[in-house]
Write a protein that binds this DNA or RNA. Structure first.
Lengths: 213, 213
DNA sequence: GCCGATATCCCCCGGCCGGGGGAGGGGCGC
DNA sequence: GCGCCCCTCCCCCGGCCGGGGGATATCGGC
């Protein structure tokens, strides 16, 4: 499909990286690097002027960094998609970048074809991550209740209020029952979860997917 | 790059959907649909026999569903990447699918080019989601500490152990300090977080992005 | 040199919590 | 009808917790 090529802006403080990316992307007939920026401020400026479809954004840049630049770029009218590219995978940038609104997160160590695919992917509107980042994102989510203890509805309800930081008395008032009743429910929850106190109950309950925080 | 084409297996209980996908994917010179399966069991069987690079997997299928099939397929030696495709976006399948090990999650309402890009993306090893799914995944993550109280390193450490469900005495043993010291730190944490007790501290600390659960 | 922040330890005390019992009523399935 | 589970309430008691004080030592910066 000879559509109009995807217009790409490359933002990285290393001229070498910019050249490399340009080489890789311009080699594809459907991709076109329309500009390069050496810092975040310039990236925003050029985005406004050149209106690219995709911005390849480095995280670490002097002055305005890639995360801030991502926010700014996405606030422009008819914003481009932002593909954040970084060197190290174990900085916590992934979450920050995605929160800032980035459509994708890629490691620089990715091969040329991965880079090319990534640009095309975000260009059509999908989101993309390197697999470890996605797994990390999923891993730290509450488990889908596999082998979770079977709490009664009332017990789940009480656990939920415990997780809100309420005392037994407050929970009793909330549920319009006696404090003794709440104490019984809490005791059941503790026993079923194998928790020693309400704090452990909250953590275990959260990990078992029984409560939302 | 005329590499060997990406070999794709299509698994969906609707013959019409299978035909549609085949049409879309086979139109690309670098993609090749090597087989179709009408249910999860058949998908596993064909994966073992045909050894595709990518499996496009529907979630809802009779018998073995797409999620279970994904798990099984990924347990095969030298497994393919699995791209899960579904109709509705508000079922909680995304998390289940990714937990099962899927490399991507796409909506059927995606256009042909999105579908093609998605297959190519997972083929090169990246992970992919439709944007709303990613935003949902990020949304429910702990906030990146915007306006979070400034805890001292020691206080953060103590809070982390509190969040593990430890008593002050256990924390003291863990940190090799007196119980009194721990009590002081906990008191500071409670004050800074505005929590009444350790349970609230854990919840507030979690929401402030100060502790991982 | 002084001050602030941090980390460490100490005492008293009131309170909520959690463990161990027991007990009654209502709904559901066999 | 009988048993079982769930929800409800009750008593006693030991313990950890959290609030209120105060004290000492180290480090770093102005």
């Amino acid at each position: 499909m000879p559509d109009a090529p995807v217009r790409v802006l490359v933002a990285d403080d290393e001229p070498l990286v910019r050249s490399g990316l340009r080489l890789i992307l311009d080699a594809e007939p459907d991709l076109e690097v329309v500009g390069e920026a050496g810092d975040g401020a310039r990236a925003v400026e050029l985005t406004r002027a050149l209106r690219p479809d995709v911005v390849c954004m480095d995280v670490r840049m002097p002055g305005v960094d890639g995360l801030r630049a991502t926010e700014l770029v996405l606030r422009l009218p008819d914003p481009p998609r932002v593909l954040v590219v970084t060197t190290f995978e174990h900085d916590g940038y992934v979450l920050d970048a995605l929160t800032a609104g980035a459509s994708g997160f890629l490691l620089k160590r990715a091969g040329a074809d991965e880079m090319v695919q990534a640009v095309r992917t975000v260009a059509v509107g999908q989101s993309l991550l390197y697999p470890q980042a996605l797994r990390e994102l999923v891993r730290t989510r509450p488990r889908a209740a596999a082998g979770a203890p079977a709490l009664t509805p009332r017990e789940r309800e009480v656990l939920g209020l415990v997780a809100e930081g309420m005392t037994n008395a407050e929970i009793a008032a909330e549920l319009v029952v006696g404090v003794e009743t709440v104490r019984t429910h809490v005791a059941s929850v503790l026993a079923k979860l194998g928790a020693r106190d309400r704090t452990q109950a909250v953590v275990l309950g959260y990990r078992a997917g029984l409560v939302e925080l």
